[in-house]
Write a protein that binds this DNA or RNA. Structure first.
Length: 580
DNA sequence: GGGCGGTACTG
DNA sequence: CAGTAC
DNA sequence: GCCC
């Protein structure tokens, strides 16, 4: 393959597939090579240069038809069409400028190595495969997968729906004798899949989280389909540890559906980079499902039965299984784009839209960004202190920042209660930013905003507060800014100060303690129980779904404990609210 | 065909 | 209003 | 993208 990048995920995936069809991929260019698969971006001369060959060296071999220079889409096209596609402008790469070709060079009928491969079980094997390299030991004939294919239905792949439907009463029963965390944990697992930040975890880490959740608890509130496993996940987590210890390996899970999972992960990657929130979610769920299968999911018909996999993904799965490739992927690949977007989005005020726009305009580095004239004030400031903001804040330093704020606000009003939230309250050893809630019994919103304004005057006066990203407007209930503390090396840190009415502090504490995944879980659980939860309180869900207020009467807002209780789950100390 | 969280701030 | 952050 |  040219260029040859054996370390790349795609390379590994493809070689594996080609191998299944009896070919052998080699990284050396020698006489054993029959086909050179060339990246679409590359032309003939670049390829020659890359292979360190001058035209004359190889010309005879080409003319003899023993070496073919083709696009790397050629193998999958052949597999798809169930025949060797003869040389054509579509797939053949011209090495020399004016093609002197003695026209149609038909595929030599050297057809050795007839590896039997069954594409569709009904039809007799039609595609005769010959290997791509001429090396002789490739006669491994993969066993026809027909038997497996029929077997899969009997085996009842995990979560295939059909079988177990009427479980409602079972679920009810479980809910009743429901011990402890069942419900919350079951929604946690669901929420994890939606968590955007989860992309920072390896697939294996996500999977591991799911496994431990599932092993420990049943899921009375999840859809019936989802309840019957138990045998599925097991043992994988050893490999997880190994994978994790390894150095530069992109998680490359083995398993019956590794190929499909890997390719779909690339699609996921792509949509994530594009900011397509909902497709991303769908791919995440589908991949999670596939990872739980203990048998290969080969056909679209099998795939659609699984939860989270609809007709479109099912077709893609079948295509991947047949061709080892996904046409769609070719259009979606951008080398390194994802990493650049991640870099850009760490600038405050740069989200998916802006990052993609900039990327399309050629921005690749922070220095590129610095040359732009159209940065907003927030973007500019965030960029100026990019390194500081990117750095994690040691817990003790968070304490310093917090105490400074607490002390200052107590100078103004000793009755204000100040609490550090976020990862600090979850007892993490370091934090991404500093979140502080200010609240006070019997204080109106206005009282609080007045206090905040005074507080900020003081903090800016001290030189502790450095910049306001937002929220200082008239009577805003929050301040989003930056602070710097001498005991923290005067590094600029992101700090949020939230004003919370006394009656809402319970809900606010839950919300601002997080983590994000935990919050999603809580919201989901609330919904399933007929409530709505936000940072202001726990409300009854409105009967008419889409009314303006969107929420019913307040059930509880001021007591964290009571909100948990109402939802029927035991309160968890903040440090147990770290999910994922 | 709508929901997938809901709200507040910036430009 | 779109985009972004929380 | 999927589910309802």
């Amino acid at each position: 393959m040219v260029p040859s990048r054996p370390s790349s995920k795609l390379y590994q995936i493809k070689s594996k597939k080609y191998d299944e069809y009896g070919a052998r991929v080699t990284s050396s260019f020698d006489k054993s090579v029959s086909h050179v698969l060339i990246d679409p971006e590359w032309d003939g001369s670049r390829t020659l240069k890359y292979l360190h060959i001058s035209a004359g060296d190889i010309r005879p071999e080409i003319d003899k038809g023993t070496i073919h220079f083709v696009r790397d889409s050629w193998p999958s096209a052949c597999i798809e069409n169930k025949q060797l596609i003869p040389e054509s402008p579509d797939y053949t790469v011209q090495l020399y400028s004016p093609a002197p070709s003695p026209e149609t060079t038909p595929e030599p009928e050297v057809s050795q190595k007839l590896v039997q491969t069954v594409i569709s079980p009904e039809k007799p094997p039609k595609l005769k495969k010959r290997d791509i390299s001429t090396s002789s030991n490739t006669s491994l004939s993969p066993e026809p997968d027909t038997p497996k294919q029929t077997a899969i239905d009997d085996l009842n792949p995990v979560e295939a729906s059909g079988a177990n439907t009427s479980i409602e009463n079972k679920a009810e029963k479980k809910a009743q004798d429901g011990s402890g965390n069942d419900e919350l944990d079951s929604v946690i697992q669901e929420a994890e899949l939606q968590e955007h930040a989860a992309r920072f975890l390896s697939d294996d880490e996500i999977e591991h989280a799911l496994q431990t959740q599932r092993k420990k608890y049943s899921a009375p509130y999840s859809r019936p389909k989802r309840t019957s496993d138990g045998r599925v996940l097991k043992g994988n987590w050893d490999t997880f540890l190994c994978m994790k210890a390894g150095e530069d390996n992109i998680a490359k899970p083995d398993g019956p559906n590794a190929l499909v999972i890997n390719i779909l992960s690339l699609m996921l990657h792509h949509y994530e980079a594009e900011g397509d929130q909902w497709r991303t979610l769908a791919y995440r769920k589908a991949i999670a499902t596939l990872k739980k299968q203990t048998v290969p999911v080969r056909t679209a018909a099998q795939a659609v039965k699984l939860p989270g996999i609809g007709s479109r993904l099912a077709d893609k799965i079948e295509e991947i299984n047949k061709t080892g490739d996904l046409k769609r992927l070719k259009y979606t690949q951008g080398e390194g784009k994802f990493e650049v977007l991640e870099l850009l989005k760490r600038i405050y005020g740069v989200g998916n839209k802006t990052a993609n726009k900039w990327y399309s305009e050629g921005i690749r580095t922070l220095d590129d960004v610095r040359e732009r004239k159209d940065l907003t004030a927030n973007q500019q400031t965030s960029l100026d202190h990019y390194e500081d903001f990117a750095e994690r804040i040691p817990r003790d330093n968070v304490t310093k920042h917090f105490e400074r704020v607490r002390d200052a606000v107590h100078e103004i009003d000793p009755e204000i209660e100040a609490t550090a939230m976020g990862s600090y309250r979850r007892l993490q050893p370091d934090c991404g930013d500093i979140d502080i809630i200010l609240t006070k019994r019997n204080a109106s919103r206005h009282d609080l905003t007045v206090t905040l304004a005074k507080l900020l005057d003081v903090l800016f006066e001290q030189g502790f507060a450095k910049y306001t990203f937002g929220g200082i407007e008239a009577n805003s209930m929050r301040w989003l800014g930056a602070s710097a503390h001498p005991d923290d090396g005067n590094k600029w840190r992101r700090m949020d100060i939230l004003l919370v009415p006394w009656e809402e502090r319970g809900a606010a504490f839950i919300y601002y303690t997080g983590n994000d995944i935990f919050n999603r879980s809580m919201r989901l659980l609330a919904q399933k129980k007929g409530y709505r939860l936000n940072e202001k309180g726990l409300f009854l869900a409105p009967h008419d779904r889409k009314s303006a207020g969107a929420v019913g009467p307040l059930v509880c807002g001021e007591d964290e404990e009571k909100i948990f209780e109402t939802l029927g789950v035991p309160n968890r100390p903040p440090h147990k609210r770290i999910i994922g």
